[in-house]
């Protein structure tokens, strides 16, 4: 019953779909691939979130303890969700996800502290949106804490526009161009 979200008239993209690889600003060779559903990748993500700094949580996610992390991952790594992971060798360094919500998708992105401020977030979100566009996703929304300027700046650069600024969290939306 909540009011419908407004999506920008102007579309964003096209974005390169994964797999992609790049060198980050620290000179690390990183690779972005869609999540493959294997036990190895699942466990690598559990390890990443166990190492995640609680200070970087947003609105309760990622959750804190291993059991909660596993429950949460079970939910968002499920079949209908779209997930991409950025790898430093066998280690997951970041993860971005699109979770279905009616005819739109909710987006979130996480980069492990040791890999932040190296340009990885931009590559990761672009890959996720490229993957999403490939799978027919059109409308994407997210919420972000308004004080989190780095994140808000990244989302704006990608093409997100503020759709609701009346709540605690800022709501932003994006329309993906077909590709």
């Amino acid at each position: 019953m909540s009011k419908p979200r407004r999506y920008p008239d102007e579309t964003a993209g096209p974005f390169a779909a994964p797999p992609t690889s790049f060198e980050d600003r620290e000179g690390r060779e990183m690779e972005i691939r869609p999540y493959d559903g294997s036990d190895e990748e699942f466990e690598a993500l559990v390890a990443m979130y166990e190492a995640f700094d609680p200070a970087d949580r947003a609105q309760g996610i990622p959750p804190g303890q291993e059991r909660r992390i596993r429950d949460w991952l079970d939910n968002i790594l499920d079949g209908d969700c779209l997930n991409v992971v950025v790898w430093d060798g066998d280690d997951a360094a970041g993860h971005a996800t699109l979770v279905p919500d009616g005819d739109a998708y909710e987006l979130a992105i996480f980069v492990l502290q040791a890999y932040q401020e190296a340009g990885i977030g931009t590559h990761l979100i672009e890959s996720l949106l490229g993957y999403g566009a490939e799978q027919g996703v059109e409308n994407v929304w997210l919420t972000v804490e308004r004080w989190n300027r780095a994140a808000v700046g990244l989302y704006k650069k990608i093409g997100f526009e503020t759709s609701d600024s009346e709540s605690f969290e800022l709501e932003m939306t994006l329309t993906l161009s077909a590709q």
Binding site: Q59, I61, W72, E106
Partner: peptide, 15 residues
């Protein structure tokens, strides 16, 4: 409430 992603959203009454 929590969003599909699991994010906690505070409603306007609570706020």
């Amino acid at each position: 409430q929590t969003s599909p992603m699991g994010k906690i959203n505070l409603g306007s009454i609570a706020e």
